[in-house]
């Protein structure tokens, strides 16, 4: 009996076929062949029932006059209304901002005029700083998180508190010393300056989050790797880290988002060269007057990467990648 190994729904084994005793020398039919057949039938059956169940749930969810669902949808509209208003405002043609009608022909005028201005440069700055900061935080934070998870350091509790305080500290406590330091060292109004400052909260986030992901990997896997020939960090690289890939991705996205969203540090530590997108918006308000279409368009642009990333990460569930490695 050959089995398709990708788990796809091959027609090689029918449910009926599994129930019948196998043709061939029954005396030598080994246990694991029955295992495989059984398993495959189970997986196939489970999958089709699962998807059927899910479709049914969707239909029921939509068709039901369930008060809860109605209430939820009403609430959804009410809560998202301000957000949606901003987005639609950015799509209005520039001569119709205060138009009474809710219907209009969407136009990208506001966006176009934005991208032709200094704003595009600030967008690039945001991109550079957020990506670099996330990368740097991972570089330093991931090994540290692993060491903290696996090793009984005596200072563990104190380090944890330190990390927590770093996350919680009001930015103004750091901006004053950093501003002074950067003025003297010339890092004011540079991307590098922001990247370093963002490490204050991003490193803490990486260490905090990755510890939980590493703790979920059973140590027996690493011990097996030690016996197979790994040292501490090669076991980490070959076994532990691949298994935490989803958590790693989620953490990276979180670092990116927090860096992208920052306003305070960027406001104070940049002037003209390294302004990031959030600060550039405010420059509009102050220097070009209250041009609502541009304001709305800039707001929509700035939020776009964040919203997209959030949706991506949310649907990336950690689907028990350890299933099968450790007897559950």
């Amino acid at each position: 009996m050959t089995m398709s190994n990708s788990g796809s729904q091959s027609a090689a084994i029918t449910p009926a076929g599994v129930d019948r005793p196998a043709a061939g020398p029954s005396a030598t039919r080994s246990l694991e062949q029955a295992d495989s057949a059984h398993l495959a039938a189970h997986v196939r059956k489970g999958r089709s029932t699962e998807s059927a169940r899910r479709t049914a749930a969707w239909l029921v969810g939509i068709a039901s006059i369930d008060g809860r669902v109605v209430g939820a949808l009403v609430l959804l509209l009410v809560v998202m209304f301000p957000f949606l208003w901003l987005v639609q405002l950015s799509l209005r043609p520039t001569n119709d901002i205060f138009g009474e009608s809710l219907l209009f022909v969407p136009s990208l005028d506001s966006f176009r005029s934005l991208l032709q201005s200094h704003f595009a440069g600030s967008f690039v700055n945001s991109l550079i700083v957020s990506t670099a900061s996330a990368g740097l935080s991972l570089l330093f934070g991931v090994p540290a998180a692993y060491a903290l998870t696996r090793c009984r350091f005596r200072a563990r509790g104190r380090i944890a508190l330190w990390i927590l305080v770093t996350r919680m500290a009001p930015p103004i406590a750091f901006t004053i010393p950093f501003y002074m330091a950067y003025r003297w060292s010339g890092l004011l109004d540079t991307n590098l300056g922001l990247i370093i400052v963002y490490l204050t909260f991003n490193l803490a986030i990486v260490i905090w989050l990755m510890q939980t992901y590493f703790a979920a990997i059973p140590q027996a896997l690493e011990e097996a790797a030690y016996i197979d020939g790994c040292g501490v960090w090669s076991a980490f690289w070959r076994v532990t880290l691949p298994l935490t890939a989803p958590g790693l991705a989620a953490t990276a996205v979180l670092c990116f988002v927090f860096s992208w969203n920052d306003f305070f540090y960027a406001l104070i530590l940049t002037r003209t060269n390294a302004t990031t997108a959030p600060v550039a918006i405010v420059n509009f308000l102050q220097y070009e007057g209250w041009e609502w279409p541009k304001i709305a368009a800039s707001g929509t642009l700035v939020m776009l990467p964040v919203v997209i990333f959030t949706i991506l990460v949310r649907s990336y569930l950690v689907r028990g990648m350890t299933a099968g490695g450790i007897k559950d």
Binding site: A220, A224, P242, G325, I326, K327
Partner: peptide, 9 residues
């Protein structure tokens, strides 16, 4: 190992 400790990935 008791729980096999096979590398899942």
């Amino acid at each position: 190992f008791q729980n096999y400790a096979l590398y899942p990935h």
